[in-house]
Design a protein around this nucleic acid. Structure first.
Length: 476
RNA sequence: GGGCCUAUAGCUCAGUAGGUAGAGCAACGGACUUUUAAUCCGUGGGUCGACGGUUCGAGCCCGUCUGGGCCCA
């Protein structure tokens, strides 16, 4: 703080602008491999944050870092700048400061590319110390102080960059297929499109209770009714539920709808989106994760029927017609402790117990129970199941896709069934959305739809936990 | 919701058996014109997460709460 005052007396601790001529990256790129102890005669002006500081008697060294993490050494020598300037450097400059340096590009006697300063200026003074760079920061500190994490940890910057590149790739894939990106409400009068508990809020202007959306589905479908035949949206969903390694209360969700598509075309689209992203960002479908393992996203991903795979793994034939008592008996025998009115809930829980742990390669699990998928149309030939898949990658749910239910009468019946569930105490049961039903009554073309968690996609591509793929995750 | 672990300096951590609170880096003072986590000499720095209890005495033992993590449901 005293240094800030001193700087303000001399010039400024926080100048409005500085005559920078080169980025650190540009200087590095221009002199890729100079010999040691060379003077180039070229003068540059750069600025960067001081990551290391080595002040000796009459010659000082500092490592400057740019926003991308690129670094270059600055040298302040007595015979170049004079005693007063050298002394002010030693007195006023700390680790973490942004400084401006003008001088000749040289290499040191040890061969380090450096700028031998004729002049230095404070670019922005830090009044708090940087953490030491010789130990890993604790996870808690990194999440609460992501801006520091970004300064000191290459990987933190890298994850942000990968995420941006993945989003770019996804948008490219959609653009190449004539999908339009649209935005639908986050504040909703009736929440819908998923089974989850919502966050509630209140509008003063409308004097009404509003919900943060749990999914954009019902609005994207309205868009399809309106003739926007290929639409997608990437934005935040909010679910008022637990947070752990794979769940965040707010998370980025991609949803896409394609008129005249079905769950098969959406499966292909989803595989293409993920494979294109891996190829665009990493140049391969065999993605190397940070934990040293590899995630093989290549090839055509297999499809596996939920009922068939469960029957096989459990050693008992299980169909939509299997008696509830039998499902309960089976659940009890493997110590799955659930009490739920829905047949399909037991089937899904049993499937997760018997089959899911063995899933390693990306797999589309298809043809789900009707009663747990109220927005999906009945299977075209198998009774009792719907045309829905869940994509599992490395054993956890990555995406879902439907042949959308477009029959307004059947949709109303499904909502009524959900209301019965809500009455019996299920807090996640869907609400009946009368305005959405009205839209369907105007005729929605047969359509496929898909949804994918973006944070989870980043997890699949990096092997990190969700709090590392989200730049600023919620912390208490 | 249940169980287990955890919280000590700006950061990363140690703290034995209950007996004056420690290290490295950072900071401060000094030396040093080629350093690369510079080095050397010296100095300062703590509500030991909070509250309560046991004890002559608590960072350490006990209880409650708060934050964080892991496992189970």
């Amino acid at each position: 703080m005293q240094k800030r005052e001193r700087l303000n007396q001399i010039s400024s601790a926080y100048p409005v602008s500085l005559p920078i001529t080169h980025t650190i990256e540009a200087v590095r790129a221009h002199y890729p491999n100079l010999e040691a102890d060379i003077s180039t005669g070229d003068e540059v002006s750069v600025a960067g944050r001081i990551m290391f500081l080595r002040n000796t008697g009459k010659l000082c060294f500092a490592t400057l870092q740019s926003g991308t993490g690129e670094r270059i050494q600055a040298m302040i020598s007595l015979d170049k700048v004079g005693e007063e300037t050298l002394e002010s450097w030693k007195e006023l400059v700390d680790l973490g400061d942004h400084v401006f340096v003008r001088g000749e590009v040289i290499t040191s006697k040890r061969g380090e590319l450096s700028i031998l300063a004729d002049e230095w200026l404070m670019a922005a003074k830090t009044i708090r110390p940087l953490p030491n760079l010789h130990n890993e920061l604790g996870e808690e500190f990194r999440v609460r102080h992501r801006y520091i994490d970004l300064i000191v940890r290459d990987r933190a910057r890298e994850v942000v960059k990968i995420r941006a590149q993945v989003m770019q790739s996804i948008r490219n894939t959609f653009a190449n297929r004539a999908f339009m990106e649209i935005e639908t409400p986050m504040l909703q009068v009736v929440h819908g499109g998923a089974s989850a508990r919502p966050f509630k809020t209140h509008s003063n202007a409308f004097d009404t209770e509003l919900f943060l959306r749990i999914a954009p589905e019902l609005f994207l479908k309205r868009a399809v009714v309106g003739g926007l035949e290929r639409v997608f949206e990437v934005n935040r969903n909010f679910r008022n539920e637990g947070a752990d390694r794979t769940h965040s209360p707010e998370f980025a969700m991609l949803e896409a709808y394609e008129a005249y598509g079905d769950y098969h075309t959406m499966a292909q689209l989803t595989q293409d989106l993920i494979q294109n992203a891996a190829m665009d960002v990493f140049g391969t479908h065999q993605v190397a994760l940070y934990d040293g393992t590899e995630n093989d996203l290549g090839g055509t991903w297999p499809k596996m029927s939920m009922f068939h795979s469960l029957s096989e793994a459990a050693g008992v034939e299980i169909t939509p017609a299997t008696d509830m008592a039998e499902l309960k008996k089976l659940a009890k025998s493997v110590e799955i402790d659930i009490e739920h009115p829905l047949h399909g809930k037991y089937v899904e829980e049993l499937w997760e117990h018997f089959v899911k742990p063995g899933l390693d390669r990306p797999t589309f699990v298809t043809d789900f129970p009707v009663d747990t998928s109220p927005l999906t149309r009945d299977h075209r030939s198998i009774s009792g199941v719907v045309e829905k898949w869940d994509l599992y990658i490395r054993g956890f749910e990555q995406a879902t896709g439907y042949s959308e239910l477009v029959d307004p009468v059947v949709q109303r019946e499904r909502f009524m069934a959900q209301m019965e569930l809500a009455k019996s105490g299920d807090p996640e049961a869907m609400k009946l959305d009368e305005e959405f039903l009205k839209a369907l009554e105007f005729g929605m073309p047969p359509s496929g739809g898909m949804g994918m968690g973006i944070d989870r996609l980043l997890m699949s591509l990096t092997g990190l936990g969700i709090r590392e793929t989200i730049l600023f995750p919620l912390v208490k």
